[in-house]
Amino acid sequence: MKGTPYILLVIMILACSCTDILLGEDEDNNPENIFELFWTDFDLHYSLFEIRNLKWDSIYDVYRPQVTQQTSSPKLRSIFVDMIEYLDDSHTALYTNGMGDYTSGFALGEKAIKEEFSINLIKLNYTDGLETVKGEGDMAFGSIKGKDIGYISIRKMEGDDPEGAITNVLNELANQKAIIVDIRTNDGGDGGYAKTIAGAFSDGEYFISTVQTRNGPSHSDFDAITREYTQRTGTVQYLKPVILLTDRATISAGDYFALNMRAFHHVTIIGDSTAGDLSSKSMRKFLPNGWSYHYSIQKRLLPDGTSLDGIGVVPDVYVKNSKQDIQGGTDKVLNTAILYLKETYGIE
């Protein structure tokens, strides 16, 4: 027993010197290994292969032969972009350290952001200015010029106090005969936040979707089904006519907000389909060359088992702006909403 402290000391020193054995070798930073890591990680974790009938093995067959030890970074980036574009899923994105980030299936969303929407135009031409709600990601409200119609813009589903914020806004707009809720170019955030805001307009608790997270190596491995219902937020809900404006840049938690709102009988959706990214995205994943990425890890289905991923929440009235509309000072979507309220409810 006398030697016990010395034996333990020797064991500890030996253990210190063999970290490589304990952890394993670090990943090689070469194009072939990076491709293998990238493809395999999607194969093991991405959630929408089956629901969208995607053949990921065929992507391997097409692109793996194009990658060698000599493949340049721009070429590898181009291959990865093609691979994720095949998924057509805005929750899937690649970040390449200064070589340009890329979001899958977002061409229409990008166009909507750049050309088909202008919050300044609404501030100047349609309202007497918008009041920003402090503490919330990007929420503002006001009234449509010369009308008894309130206007709320929500461009992020994030904030400190969604219930307090929406309650205060609705109190401010209580005298209006209708409200237009504009979530065009809403880039998402927190699903719970979206649900709470939507709950302020709730006329009931409706079964709207099921959600499952992928939990195994097979493309069909998912955890137990959770049913999701709309909720009521606050003690009093706004039950006068509501128009929800959406476009292809209404993403993720924005999609989810629209999914909640479409269940309510006094809500009409006008605009373009939302982006159709209803499943939560993964954590950021890392590659040995400094690139990172994320992707969808859930499937959210309608009660009838169909999916809106890639399709989006379809509006009741389809209309979209062109670049020329916006440049000419007209928001055709907002005009349609105002006209709809007049023709359907006699509100102006």
Binding site: T213, G216, D221, S280, S282, I297
Partner: peptide, 24 residues
Amino acid sequence: IGVAIPLAGILVRPPYNGYDYFIE
């Protein structure tokens, strides 16, 4: 000198995909 070796306990790790509805 002290040595401790775990026998049994509750191990808490992220779910398979790091995130799930429960965490949300």
